[in-house]
């Protein structure tokens, strides 16, 4: 395997030394491009109190291409589908090499605070979010309580 780019090493060190509150990202033992991530559900969102596991992979030409990120813990959110895939512009056409692992994860955390049912990835969830928001929020809370707790 090719040597790890310096930028990835630098980002990893900074993630360990100055972690972002509510977010932890640590590299896998056998593959330093694969990160195990935990994002805590933001306060005053239906995901509050949840610990969501994600996986993040830095492709060969990172930071020229966006990291690949996916939820591993089940989550009820209009912009996250059943497979945990995330609909977020900075992971697609709005990627910039000035973004980093930490800024990507912060954006994902912000997406939890601001679901956008008008740009859905999980159609059934988005539909309910639009026609009956309070029920959708109840579902999101229920899924958080059921699937995303630590003890």
């Amino acid at each position: 395997m090719a040597a790890l780019p310096r930028r990835i090493i630098k980002e990893t060190q900074r993630l360990m030394q100055e972690p972002v509150p509510g977010i932890s990202a640590i590299p896998d033992e056998s593959n330093a491009r694969y990160f195990h991530v935990i994002v805590t559900g933001p306060e005053d969102s239906p995901f509050e109190g949840g610990l969501f596991k994600l996986e993040l992979f830095l492709p060969e030409d990172y930071p020229m291409s966006a990291p690949k990120v996916r939820f591993i813990t089940k989550i009820y959110h209009p912009n996250i589908d059943r497979l945990g895939r995330i609909c977020l512009d900075i992971l697609k056409d709005k990627w910039s090499p000035a973004l980093q692992i930490r800024t990507v994860l912060l954006s994902i955390q912000a997406l939890l605070s601001a679901p956008n049912p008008d740009d859905p990835l999980a159609n059934d969830v988005a539909e309910l979010w639009k026609v009956n928001e309070s029920e959708a929020i109840r579902n999101a809370k229920e899924w958080t309580r059921r699937y995303a707790m630590d003890t």
Partner: peptide, 30 residues
């Protein structure tokens, strides 16, 4: 400088694994 796996990192990896196992046992993992 080069990257190396520290004991602190190993500990964090273990914690993550524990959370994963717990959530899996509750059917919370996709």
């Amino acid at each position: 400088q080069n990257f190396s796996v520290t004991s602190e990192l190993k500990m964090l990896q273990c914690k993550m694994q524990e959370l994963f196992s717990y959530q899996k046992s509750r059917g919370g993992i996709i």
